[in-house]
Design a protein around this nucleic acid. Structure first.
Length: 490
RNA sequence: GGUUCCUUAGCCGAGUGGUUAGGCACCGGUCUGCAAAACCGUUUACGGCGGUUCGAAUCCGCCAGGAACCUCCA
């Protein structure tokens, strides 16, 4: 496993060489979606970011177990019905079983991820399917003395914990400030300190999602599932834990506290956080009501969207920014990404048209090395893409005779695209996704263009322009090149 | 209020103490019956003010503007 992959560890606040605990195996846990609504751009970013990591680690030869949880219980909602389970609330509103809601949105989430060509994780555990593990974990923390029971709920004792460990080491907070600045929330009086957080929450009588526990009927606390399921599937110590920056505090901070309290040590060696997506410079969020679902992007059906954007355009757009930077959405930016992506795809297709020469004027190997350097530098996909654009210029120049490729160069540049564009960055050529019945009508279009060619030969401009203009009106893009006419259906 | 972070050309977005990121748009050119498309070439930059330095957009300080977290969120 010779490589120089370094990744930015939020815990250390610097890039570190990635060294797995048990090479060639790598354990990786990423916070997945809460399935109570349609996936939006904000879900795409971590999914794609850690999909790249998953793919690249495998490319380097690691055997990766990638766990991404499904949150279908637990988190609290902060509006009028404070304290009510998110899933339960939606269920009651629509008179459906909670699990029916979960299944519905999970199916849709999977569909969106498939469209984005995000690989399935190795395991996708549901929080609701791991209640026993979570109860056991809570008991372990209780036994160690870092939690207390209060009116049927169990709370983590932050102050007590902070005497033996340091609460806040991930997010850079200190407990004294937390105690003085945390807002007053419902149920606060049950807690010894406002900074304490729930490990197990007592269910009110009307609460639908509930499970029996040693402390009465209730449901697991907000941060418990990740600790319990991460431990179950990856062990008490594992390599990588990822998620959005918004989860840094309190979610991931609490996870660290839970594992240190229960096991006496950190579970995670490398913490990775992707940055947020903004719309007009402002973060996208449920409470802000400015989020756009992925389906809306794919169909263009949203008032802020000037057109539909294909899944690959979204993927490419996200990869054109580094995962630790915010990326600002706009129609202009997405359209720029779409054009750039199509240019790369076309260049890849055009490799086949290069006529091999006996001498070479290009150095594909150095491009390949630079791409690896970029990937190794904390997954710098924008840089990888910039080198693919350099490769694109070389291909185009080869076609006009301004560069010469040997057969070995042609093979090398094909492999460059296959490795980085398709295998590691997970792009796919969407135009080639058409079904078999496309063949018949595409031959019909070819025939029309042949007629147009004849008309042009006869200088019958009226006929040739009529064919061109009417095909264009139907949505075809007609491209007259030196070696004949090609077309594309937009 | 506390903590953290950001500010790069028309737009998006990398990076670095001294040498062209890249894409899109614009402009010029090639191609074309005319176009479109495609391709080639090219211009515009590092929020402001100080400081460190032979040299800073890159390091430090201050100021301005913006954002995130502290509360569900990817």
């Amino acid at each position: 496993m010779e490589h120089k992959l370094s990744i930015y560890n939020t815990l250390k606040r610097e890039k570190e060489l990635f060294v797995p605990l048990n090479s060639p195996h790598v354990g990786m846990y990423v916070c997945g979606p809460t399935v109570y609504g349609d996936a939006h751009l904000g879900h795409a970013r971590p999914a794609i970011t850690f999909d790249i990591l998953f793919r690249y680690l495998q490319h380097l030869g690691y055997k990766v177990r990638y766990v991404r949880n499904i949150t279908d219980v637990g988190h609290l909602e902060n509006d009028a019905d404070e304290g009510e389970d998110k899933i339960a609330k939606k269920a009651r509103l629509e008179q459906l079983e909670p699990m029916e809601i979960v299944q519905y949105f999970l199916n849709r989430y999977h569909k969106a991820m498939d469209a984005l060509n995000v690989l399935s994780p190795s395991i996708e555990p549901h929080a609701s399917g791991h209640i026993i593990e979570q109860i056991e974990y809570v008991e372990e923390i209780l036994n160690k003395g870092y939690a207390y029971v209060s009116e049927g709920s169990v709370y983590f004792d932050v102050e007590r914990y902070n005497k033996d460990f340091r609460y806040g080491k991930l997010s850079g907070r200190n407990v004294d400030e937390l105690l003085s600045t945390t807002r007053q929330l419902d149920g606060q009086q049950e807690k010894r300190n406002s900074a304490d957080f729930a490990l197990w929450k007592k269910a009110s009588p009307e609460h639908i999602m509930r499970w029996p526990s040693p402390w009465g009927d209730g449901f697991p606390g907000w941060h418990m599932e990740c600790s319990a399921m991460g431990t179950k599937y990856l062990g008490e110590e594992f390599d990588i834990h990822g998620g959005g920056m918004d989860l840094l505090f309190p979610h991931h901070e609490c996870e660290i506290a839970q594992s240190c309290a229960a096991k006496g040590k950190d579970a995670v060696r490398y913490w990775m956080h992707n940055n947020m997506i903004t719309i007009n410079g402002q973060k996208m969020g449920k409470s802000l009501g400015n989020f756009i679902t992925l389906d809306e992007f794919f169909t263009g059906n949203h008032k802020s969207l000037e057109q539909a954007y294909s899944p690959m355009t979204i993927r490419f757009f996200i990869l054109q920014a580094h995962y630790r930077s915010t990326v600002d959405f706009s129609n202009e930016a997405l359209q720029a990404s779409e054009k750039g992506m199509l240019r790369l795809m076309e260049a890849f297709d055009n490799i086949a048209r290069i006529k091999p020469a006996t001498t070479s004027t290009v150095d594909i190997e150095s491009l390949r090395e630079k791409c690896y350097e970029a990937m190794n530098d904390d997954l710098n996909t924008p840089i990888v893409i910039s080198y693919l654009f350099e490769a694109t210029t070389l291909i185009n120049k080869a076609l006009t005779g301004d560069e010469s490729f040997t057969q070995a160069d042609i093979d090398a540049i094909t492999s460059l695209f296959k490795t980085f564009m398709f295998e590691i960055m997970g792009m796919v050529e969407e135009s080639k996704a058409g079904g078999a019945n496309v063949e018949a009508y595409s031959k019909a279009v070819d025939m029309l263009l042949e007629l147009r060619q004849q008309a042009k030969a006869n200088k019958d401009w009226a006929t040739s322009d009529k064919i061109r203009n009417e095909l264009q009106a139907l949505g075809f893009e007609i491209k007259d090149g030196k070696e004949g006419t090609t077309w594309r259906l937009n």
